[in-house]
Amino acid sequence: MDEILTEINGTSIRINFVANLPYNPHLKKLLSGKRKAGILSEVLFWQQVRAKTFHNMDFDRQRIIGNYIVDFYVKKLGLVVEIDGWSHDAKQVCDEERQRYLESLGLKVFRITDFDMKNNLQIVMKDLENFIIQHYRF
């Protein structure tokens, strides 16, 4: 039975919880360092979504999925949000492989550039709303 998680711009958004995601416990020691790094674009995004401030959705920051640490994750949607900084320019093949892996688990991946987070924040948040409506509408 489908359940409604929230509503965005008059559109009901359904829950799409993906159970039993793989987890590499060896990555856990890297989490606090990544969180403390304070990458500006991640901090800006976190300020927009923390404490269920974005359509009452619960975002996790720096979540381990398999052998990866994703930037943000919405459990009830099976939604990964990745912010690609300048370092990703040289890692395009790795990013594509990572995205294929995450999608193979039934997850959806929304990518944001570091530049857009810093310069077009409101557009990014509107694009995220549209992505969620497109993929999770009830």
Rank of each mutant, 00 (worst) to 15 (best):
R50N: 15
R50Q: 15
R50I: 12
A51N: 15
A51T: 11
A51H: 14
A51P: 04
K52H: 10
K52E: 13
T53C: 13
F54R: 04
F54P: 05
F54T: 10
F54S: 06
F54L: 06
H55N: 14
N56E: 15
N56R: 15
N56C: 13
M57G: 11
M57E: 09
M57W: 09
D58C: 13
D58P: 08
F59S: 05
D60T: 14
D60M: 14
R61T: 13
R63I: 00
I64F: 03
I64S: 02
I64Y: 01
I65V: 04
I65M: 00
I65T: 01
I65W: 00
G66M: 07
G66D: 09
N67G: 11
Y68D: 04
I69A: 11
V70F: 13
V70A: 14
D71K: 08
D71C: 06
D71L: 05
D71H: 08
D71W: 06
F72D: 01
F72S: 02
Y73H: 15
K75M: 14
K75F: 14
K75G: 15
K75N: 15
K76D: 15
L77A: 10
L77F: 09
L77H: 11
G78P: 08
G78V: 08
G78I: 07
G78T: 10
G78N: 09
L79I: 12
V80P: 00
V80R: 01
V80F: 01
V80D: 00
V81P: 09
V81Q: 10
E82G: 07
E82A: 07
I83R: 00
I83H: 00
I83W: 01
D84Y: 11
D84E: 15
D84K: 13
D84G: 11
G85Y: 01
G85A: 03
W86N: 12
W86C: 05
S87K: 13
H88I: 01
H88K: 03
D89E: 12
D89S: 09
D89W: 09
D89H: 12
D89R: 11
A90D: 14
A90N: 14
A90T: 14
A90V: 12
A90G: 09
A90W: 09
K91L: 11
K91W: 08
Q92T: 11
V93S: 12
C94A: 15
E96R: 14
E96N: 13
E96Y: 10
E97P: 03
Q99T: 15
Q99G: 03
Q99I: 10
Q99D: 12
R100L: 08
R100Y: 05
Y101T: 00
Y101F: 14
L102R: 01
L102V: 03
S104P: 05
S104Q: 05
L105H: 01
L105E: 02
G106F: 02
G106E: 05
K108C: 07
K108F: 10
K108S: 10
K108Q: 11
K108M: 07
K108Y: 10
F110C: 07
F110Q: 08
F110L: 07
F110G: 04
R111A: 02
R111T: 05
I112H: 04
I112T: 05
I112Y: 04
I112E: 03
T113C: 06
T113F: 04
T113A: 06
D114S: 07
D114P: 01
F115K: 11
D116W: 08
D116C: 06
